[in-house]
Amino acid sequence: MLKQVVRLLMAALYVSIPYAATAAERVVDPVASWNKHFKTWAVVSIVVYLVVTIPLIYFVFKYKRKRKDENGAYIVGNTAIEILWTVVPMIIIIMLGAQSWAVFNDLRDVPKDHIEVKAVGFMYGFEMYSPEGIKTINELRVPVGNVKVNLTSKDVIHDFALPAFRTREDMVPGENTYLWFAAKEPGEYPVYCAEYCGAGHSQMLAKVIVMKQDDYDAWVKKQKGDSEMASLTPETKGKDLVERLGCLGCHSITGETKAGPALNGIIGKSEELEDGTKVAIDEAFVKEKIADPKAKPIKGFGHMMPPNMLAKEEYEAIAAYLKTTK
């Protein structure tokens, strides 16, 4: 009932607005319509700013106090002028609002011809799933075309911000949200987490890689076959995993302490655990730690790292790679 009333009200508002025609039109490119909206806003804003500041400065000089006991003119107000500067801003705001509504519709109404992918936020990174079910970390590969991204989160609220396509939406644990974008040019586009999520927030970065359809098909084939991965050395494979799994969001390989300890040269080091015992870090410890990080927390760091389920060779590859870092 309430919903119907609100809908009715919305419909009434919708038709009564002079710009409703614009809102009803379907512009296919949200980026272009956003850019146009920005320009309209910018022009209006600059005019408003000048309309306020120029008289302000002019009056201050023109009506400077000349005598000590001088009074200003006695003016109570002027209804006509006051109505004027109520109605004109109202019209400007309704026009801007209608344009914005149209842009919003572009940003939220997914065109019929689209592919669907999925992104899941975690502390600190993004799991991406292609329509073929290929899982990647912190990079989303899509072919040229319209892409709908279904969003959710594993732990806390994150956000999938895609400035190049003028869109973003929160990733809410236990709920499903979405956004869409029109991928036109092949290339790499940055993704940011734009909802504060803790120590690794500013390192929660990813990218969308738009590929030509042929390249994308080849990539899918390669991933399915996974033929190339087998021929790689464990060290190279380990490096690839560390980068792909998002480890570098919290662990540096340059020696700097981020949300977690630095990884370079960690094998062979000795660290103190939270319960006070000292451990010498060896390959076995590293493997155990990746699988179940909360079992033996190292002193001075939080308990933020999520557990991982990797294949046996993958644990070994990471350990092998870490041994090579200095």
Partner: peptide, 21 residues
């Protein structure tokens, strides 16, 4: 006034999605 006009931008739904947070 600077804050006001940029606040209108934040209030404008379509505009804000790019600059939110």
């Amino acid at each position: 006034t600077i804050g006001g006009v940029t606040g209108i931008a934040n209030g404008l739904l379509g505009f804000d999605i790019q600059v939110h947070d």
